[in-house]
């Protein structure tokens, strides 16, 4: 919008120089790990970090990664996908329904309920994970997929986004018109309102997907069988074995590279659906 104006060359160069430097900073660890993933365990420590060694062995490292411990890395990837996709989908549905109801229905205790849910956004996840372990342990759920899945299905932030979006994008007139045409409230929500809330729904899903994918503490306290581990927990398990066997360094590096590339690719391809303006506009609500 400002581009039509005449721009002083000096400041254009300065701005872009800073942006390139920042790009180098954000790229550095990713570049390092991708290059390191092609090296032999010996070269990992003996060759310059930002260039390939003389004898790259990317395929060998990859096949070791996926065959080590009976191919458990593949299981970890699938587990991460399962936890994140299922957890995020259910979280999206639950928050959308609740946020929509808070936006569109007047009922006693509405603002109190919303404040309590918002308070949930402010509680550090670490504070919840430890007591939750004891509660789920009493229920006999620790060590199962459910111990990670169930808590991942709750996104207070999602309710917040859904309420804002329902207020902004679902006109009361549309609801009224649908009612006059004889549609039930649930049908109005399911087939009319949700369509108008799609940008918020996608954002809630992606936000929760990344949150679950990146979560470490919850699976750490809940799981003990390595077959149920997500990638994050699995890689730290291998990392703790590097003291015993330095070969694990290469596994950790290659595994980190694979999982970083997976998610960065997902981020980059989906970033146009990521409506940050919802989060920004939310503060004005």
């Amino acid at each position: 919008m400002v581009r039509s104006r005449r721009q002083p060359l000096g400041s254009v160069i300065a701005v872009n120089a800073v942006l390139v430097l920042a790009a180098a900073y954000f790229l550095l660890p990713l570049l390092w790990v991708v290059i390191a993933a092609t090296k032999s365990p010996g070269d990992l420590f003996a060759s310059f970090g930002l260039w390939f060694s003389d004898s790259p062995q990317a395929l060998e490292n990859l096949s070791r990664l996926f065959t080590q411990d009976g191919g458990i890395f593949g299981t970890w990837v699938l587990n991460s996908v399962l936890y994140s996709a299922v957890g995020a989908f259910v979280a999206m549905v639950l928050s959308a329904a609740c946020g929509y109801a808070i936006a569109k229905y007047v009922f006693r205790g509405r603002e109190t309920l919303f404040s309590v849910i918002l308070g949930g956004v402010l509680v550090p996840a670490t504070v919840i994970a430890l007591p939750l372990y004891f509660l789920l342990n009493a229920a006999g759920l620790t060590g199962t997929y459910w111990a990670v899945l169930l808590p991942s299905m709750v996104s207070p932030f999602g309710v917040y986004l859904a309420r804002i979006q329902a207020n902004a994008a679902v006109p009361d007139e549309v609801i009224e018109a649908a009612r006059i045409d004889g549609a039930g409230d649930l049908r109005i929500f399911g087939s009319i309102a949700t369509r108008m809330m799609v940008p918020a729904l996608v954002t809630i899903f992606l936000f929760q997907f990344v949150t679950i994918w990146n979560n470490y503490l919850l699976p750490l306290v809940m799981l003990n069988d390595t077959k149920t581990f997500p990638i994050t927990l699995g890689l730290t398990l291998w990392n703790s074995q590097t003291q015993r066997d330095p070969m694990f360094y290469q596994l950790v590096v290659t595994g980190s590279a694979v999982s970083a590339i997976l998610l960065v690719a997902l981020m980059v391809s989906l970033q146009r659906f990521w409506k940050a303006d919802l989060t920004a506009g939310a503060t004005k609500g």
Partner: peptide, 23 residues
């Protein structure tokens, strides 16, 4: 640049710590 700066958000904190640990 925007997409590039955003990319590390997808890297779990554990993996980020492992990577920076090597650096």
């Amino acid at each position: 640049f925007r997409v590039l700066y955003f990319a590390p958000y997808g890297v779990p904190g554990v993996i980020a710590a492992l990577l920076w640990g090597f650096l």
